[in-house]
Amino acid sequence: MVVTEEGWHTVPDGTKLYTKTWKTDGPAKAIVAFVHGFSDHCNAYYEFFPTLASHGIEVRAFDQRGWGHSVTIPTTRGLTGSTAVVMSDIHSFLSSIYESLASKDKDATSPSALETETPVFLMGHSMGGGEVLYYVLNSGLAIPPLRGVLAYSPLITLHPSTRPGDFKVFASKLAAKLMPHRPLVTSLSPDLMCRDKRIGQDWAEDPLCHNTGTLEGLVGMFDRGDWLDSEKAGVKGTYDGAVWIGHGTADEVNDYEGSRQLADRLAHHDKTFKSYDGAYHKLHGEPEGVKEAFAKDVAGWILERCGGSATAVNEPSGSVEVTAEAEPSKAKL
Rank of each mutant, 00 (worst) to 15 (best):
S70R: 00
A242V: 00
A53G: 10
T15V: 14
E6V: 00
E58R: 15
E117I: 13
E286W: 09
S96H: 06
V11A: 04
N211S: 08
A151H: 03
L101Y: 10
D105N: 14
R305M: 04
D277Y: 08
H9V: 12
V149P: 11
Q201M: 11
A102S: 15
L262R: 10
C194A: 00
W203H: 09
G68I: 01
K274Y: 01
P111G: 07
E58L: 14
A324Q: 11
L174S: 07
E286H: 06
H268Y: 10
L215T: 07
S259T: 03
Q261S: 10
E216H: 10
G285D: 03
A293K: 15
A310Q: 05
S309T: 13
S230G: 13
E6P: 06
H125G: 06
G165H: 01
F38Q: 03
V86C: 09
S82M: 04
M123T: 11
L52C: 11
T4I: 02
P50V: 01
A84S: 13
D105I: 11
S275H: 10
W67H: 12
V219F: 00
S70M: 01
T311R: 13
T249G: 07
P160R: 01
G130T: 10
T311G: 04
G258Q: 06
D25K: 11
N254G: 14
T157R: 12
R260T: 05
K173L: 02
K232R: 13
P50C: 01
P27V: 09
C42I: 12
I31Q: 12
T118G: 10
G225C: 04
D264P: 02
T19F: 03
P12A: 03
